[in-house]
């Protein structure tokens, strides 16, 4: 049973979201709500708009229509790690510290704990460009978790993970649920679907933006 924060309001709520890239319609009237302590998997074929929906929910893209609201800090883990190639893990943590209102010591303590839990070689001074794909992804994920996020938007967060790290990731998802976080994971793996509370399937909109606008009228 997921933890509850005492209210029935969802931690993340997207209503009637629509988005196009030029003439190509990617999302049409998508609504999603995620409760406190709930884990939701977003699935769909390539081009269905999974990553676009995540970016809209994170606030990185303004949707053409619809509204998205989150209660509490949003942690976003992009599909392609957003890292500085020439900075090491500790420097990335330090860079995030002022944004999160943490001191250098606090962010190193919190970040290194997260990294250790994910199986990252803590203390490794290698620049991000010299890390393995899995290690980069672990750093990417840890940065999303920093600062006590209440809503986690994880876009295929375990790419490059070995089997042990993958299993550990899902154990962490259970832990985050127990703490009352709302977790949204984009996935292509069928095995993941049994590990979440709900599966949200995005269908690829057929047609162009103008056709949808015409049908809406």
């Amino acid at each position: 049973m997921p933890a509850n924060d005492g209210t029935n309001a969802p931690l993340l709520e997207a209503v009637g979201v629509g988005h196009s890239y030029g003439r190509k319609l990617v999302l049409n009237d998508v609504s999603l709500s995620v409760q406190c302590g709930e884990a939701v998997a977003i699935v769909g074929e390539n081009g269905a708009g999974k990553s676009t929906l995540m970016r809209i929910c994170a606030g990185l893209i303004r949707p053409d229509c619809g509204d998205v609201r989150a209660r509490g800090r949003v942690g976003y883990c992009p599909q392609i790690p957003g890292l500085f190639d020439l900075l090491n893990a500790d420097e990335h943590l330090w860079l995030f510290a002022p944004a999160l209102g943490l001191s250098h010591e606090q962010v190193l303590g919190q970040g290194r704990t997260l990294l250790a839990e994910l199986g990252f070689p803590v203390g490794d001074r290698s620049q991000a460009r010299h890390l393995s794909g899995g290690a980069r992804q672990k750093l990417n994920l840890a940065l999303a978790l920093l600062g006590g996020a209440r809503v986690l938007l994880l876009d295929e967060p375990y790419q490059g993970f070995d089997r042990g790290a993958y299993v550990s990731f899902w154990e962490h998802v259970s832990g985050w649920q127990a703490k009352g976080l709302a977790v949204v994971v984009v996935t292509h793996l069928l095995t993941d679907l049994a590990l979440v509370d709900r599966v949200f399937e995005l269908e690829t909109p057929r047609g162009s933006r103008s056709q949808f606008e015409a049908s809406a009228r």
């Binding site: 949003v74 995030f96 600062g147």
Partner: peptide, 15 residues
């Protein structure tokens, strides 16, 4: 340009 993708995350974090 190098910072652009990371900047989005940094602003999301609170900068």
């Amino acid at each position: 340009l190098t910072a652009r993708p990371v900047d989005q995350r940094l602003v999301l974090a609170g900068y």
